[in-house]
């Protein structure tokens, strides 16, 4: 399989005041793969995601999306490039003044220039794909449960059928059945649309089921980025505790059983 690089992070440094989060971080994301990003609390997983999508300007280093530096582009081109990205934020980040359906329809109306009726019809399909009940489209985000917020946010991230999908702890707060459905949905979409996925997660089941590669953030850089099996065998104390602790082993056995 030829590896086409979609995202290339090189020499990334992020510092907040005196606190340094990333030093010389390198990472590559290839087309069509699902990359799981793991790391202890405070290792800057979300910060890495935010620097890749251009929300944080790194102190040093460069992030190239489809071979181009997002932060150096003129506004119009940057917007065009951003439309190829879909982001699912940790807290959902749904617009609280819009209904769930309008949340999903917004990018379709603004960017794909669809008529409102078409956009809402398509939004309804995306909501169904994400596994939301039919009446949920009319609700406002404030009245959704945590799991429903996740699904609605996923539907919005998928609205424009993006090339690259960024997920920040997508299965946190979902029940195990919902989380398993989510993994399957992710795999289906990836296979059918050639989606590239960057997923920050702590869900060991997700890591084993869905991810092609896992990148471990530790010591302010990517310690290792490889297939789940190779990462689990990597000789590092934290990684061994993570993957071969009781929960890690249980998740691995579950995948082997299938």
């Amino acid at each position: 399989m030829s590896k086409e690089t979609v995202i290339e992070v090189s020499g990334l440094c992020n510092r907040f005041g005196r606190n340094s989060v990333h030093e010389n971080l390198d990472l590559e994301l290839y087309r069509g793969e699902i990359l799981g990003v793991v790391g202890g609390s405070g290792t800057g997983k979300s910060v890495l995601l935010r620097s890749i999508v251009g929300l944080i300007r790194p102190k040093e280093g460069e992030v190239r999306l489809f071979g181009r530096n997002l932060l150096a582009l003129p506004v119009a081109e940057r917007s065009k490039l951003e439309q190829r990205l879909g982001v699912l934020f940790q807290g959902g980040a749904l617009f609280s003044s819009l209904t769930v359906r309008e949340n999903v329809a917004l990018p379709l109306i603004e960017h794909a220039k669809l008529a409102r009726r078409d956009a809402e019809e398509l939004a309804e399909v995306k909501l169904a794909l994400a596994g939301l009940a039919p009446h949920a489209g009319d609700l406002y985000p404030a009245s959704l449960s945590g799991g429903m917020v996740k699904r609605a946010a996923l539907a919005r991230a998928l609205a424009l059928d993006p090339d690259v999908l960024f997920l920040d702890e997508p299965t946190a707060g979902l029940d195990p059945i919902g989380a398993a459905d989510f993994d399957q949905l992710l795999l289906t979409l990836r296979n059918a649309l050639g989606l590239t996925v960057f997923m920050v997660t702590h869900d060991l089941d997700s890591l084993w089921t869905a991810c092609d590669r896992i990148a471990v953030l530790s010591q302010k850089r990517v310690l290792v980025a490889d297939t789940p099996e190779n990462v689990a065998d990597y000789d590092d104390n934290w990684i061994q505790n993570y993957f071969n602790g009781p929960r890690g082993r249980a998740a691995y056995r579950a995948v082997q059983g299938n």
Partner: peptide, 20 residues
């Protein structure tokens, strides 16, 4: 096969009851 999977997933989603 991956297109088929997409269409099948979509069909499953579409077959839910329509919103009242």
């Amino acid at each position: 096969p991956e297109r088929k999977a997409l269409l099948q997933t979509l069909l499953k989603a579409l077959k839910r009851e329509a919103p009242p």
